[in-house]
Amino acid sequence: MHIPDGILPAPVCIGGYALAAPLLGYALRKINRMPDVTEQIPKASLLTAAFFIASSIHIPIPPASVHLVLNGLLGAVLGYFAVPAIAIGLFLQAVMFGHGGLTTLGVNTVMMGLPALLAAWVFRLRHRFGRLGARRADLLFAFLAGAMGLGLAAIIFFGLILATLPSELDAQTERLAVYGLVASHVPLALIEGVFTAMLVSFLRRVKPELLPGSARWDGSNQSRANQPSTDQSSGESTGGRAA
């Protein structure tokens, strides 16, 4: 889901860059305040590459297949790094395959990056819902993050396309097109959400430290249970304190 070159009027492209710059600046300021930036950069970049590659996995849906956008998952796993990751992914896609475009890079970054950032915040909210149980809260908020990431991106996409396409289309056709496109993206958002939830549950089982904030979550669990745990993340944190 990228807007290609040439379809948007130039002021919109420039406006996209004007919105993408503060978004990136905000994310980069948050990133630069992290205590271990140099350690995070290789991690975030390799995960960016992995997301880039993973979004080429096609999900078979009986008559055809769709490929995932994964921007919700990107937000959930990478946090603030999701915004530069998306900007870089879109840049590479424009450079290597001609998906999207260089003049619309700003618009596309905002279209995918803003929902990813919101998804990151939504996924972080899961700590507030401890009553649901850790696993269920993780899955629910992963689903919400994934579905919201794609859903919001789709809404921004169609909003932009309809706002800028020639206005000579008659109103009824336009309304019909909007309803059709929105309806076709509801199942896609659901699939994206289910896929994100499945992936998060997979990561929970196999590599919990990939999910941001899981250490804190385990830590609070542990203090309530008040017993030593063999969990790798809590082991790391105590090791850090001892050192």
């Binding site: 991690k43 992995a50 997301f51 996995i57 849906i61 199942p187 992936l199 990561l203 990939l210």
Partner: peptide
């Protein structure tokens, strides 16, 4: 709805997850 088998989606999510873990 729209999906033939849930296990298929599960396998694909495990594939993507393994890719993420390997890269990490």
């Amino acid at each position: 709805p729209f999906l033939s088998r849930r296990s298929e989606l599960g396998n694909l999510s495990a594939l993507a997850g393994t890719l993420l873990i390997r890269s990490y």
